[in-house]
């Protein structure tokens, strides 16, 4: 089945990269004042903006396909601190509720009112790309009318701190800037679906052709650019995807063969 899948819109927490022409915003600073974690609220705010143009009836059955490499490591640390301090008397149930790689995805379903399939993928630095490809495949197979695809990483200071200095590239410094998020949340989401879907925004570009654009595999130890390939791809329209990490390379090569 060869149904073209189109890119309707995409959004990132990095405001300088999000296409402002669409008039859709990104995470707001007001979001960080809400009781759940700042990163999740930033992501949810941005995703709400992304879905603003989608009819509610279409939203309901839409799928959510998210890639993440570090998963819930940030929240694991928070919960672990709660259970190991004060003699382990006060493990925090609220912190534990967030210790799954799928946590932010399920929060997005609540925020966006999505009742369709939710799948969270990890494939090294190709996680978000795998999520995009799988989301497109679910659309082609007729399993979902529309899909929100992309990637989310939540950085804790301890995580980039755990990377050997030689492997920290310039991108790491960019992602660590506090204006992106106080908790180093990175997110890029795209809304994809068939062309001229009733209730969906006007398509931006054909997504599937770009998917086969080519690859440029770089250092497998540059771990800070997990979402950068997707952003580069979206910015360039039909540009090239860049993946890294051994799992990512293998996944990408296989997907490219298709």
């Amino acid at each position: 089945m060869n149904i073209p899948v189109y890119l309707y819109a995409w959004i990132s927490l990095d405001t300088s990269r999000t296409p402002q022409v669409l008039g859709w915003g990104s995470g707001s600073w007001q979001a960080v004042e809400r009781p759940t974690t700042k990163a999740a609220n930033l992501a949810c705010d941005a995703a709400q903006a992304l879905m603003a143009g989608v009819a509610p009836t279409l939203r309901d059955g839409s799928g959510l396909f998210i890639g993440t490499t570090t998963g819930s490591l940030h929240d694991d640390i928070i919960f672990d601190n709660s259970r190991t301090t004060d003699g382990g008397q006060y493990p925090s149930p609220n912190a534990f509720r967030r210790t799954l790689p799928s946590t932010i995805a399920t929060e997005l379903t609540m925020d966006l009112g999505l009742h369709g399939p939710v799948v969270v993928y990890a494939a090294g630095a190709a996680s978000a790309v795998v999520a995009c490809v799988r989301g497109a495949e679910y659309i082609r197979r007729g399993m979902v009318p529309l899909a929100i695809v992309g990637g989310i990483e939540v950085w804790n200071e301890a995580i980039p701190g755990g990377i050997a200095p030689a492997h920290v590239s310039a991108d790491a410094a960019i992602t660590a800037q506090p204006q992106v998020s106080p908790e180093r949340c990175q997110m890029v989401l795209a809304c994809i679906g068939p062309a001229e879907l009733p209730g969906a925004p006007r398509p931006m570009s054909e997504f599937t052709q770009a998917r086969l654009g080519g690859s440029n595999i770089h250092s497998p130890t540059t771990v800070n650019c997990r979402l950068q390939p997707l952003v580069d791809f979206l910015v360039a329209g039909q540009g090239q995807l860049v993946v890294d990490g051994a799992v990512g390379i293998k996944a990408w090569l296989e997907l490219q063969r298709r």
Binding site: S102, A122, V130, V247, K250
Partner: peptide, 8 residues
């Protein structure tokens, strides 16, 4: 292809 699926 190889990837992880993590949905609780």
């Amino acid at each position: 292809p190889c990837y992880v699926v993590s949905t609780a």
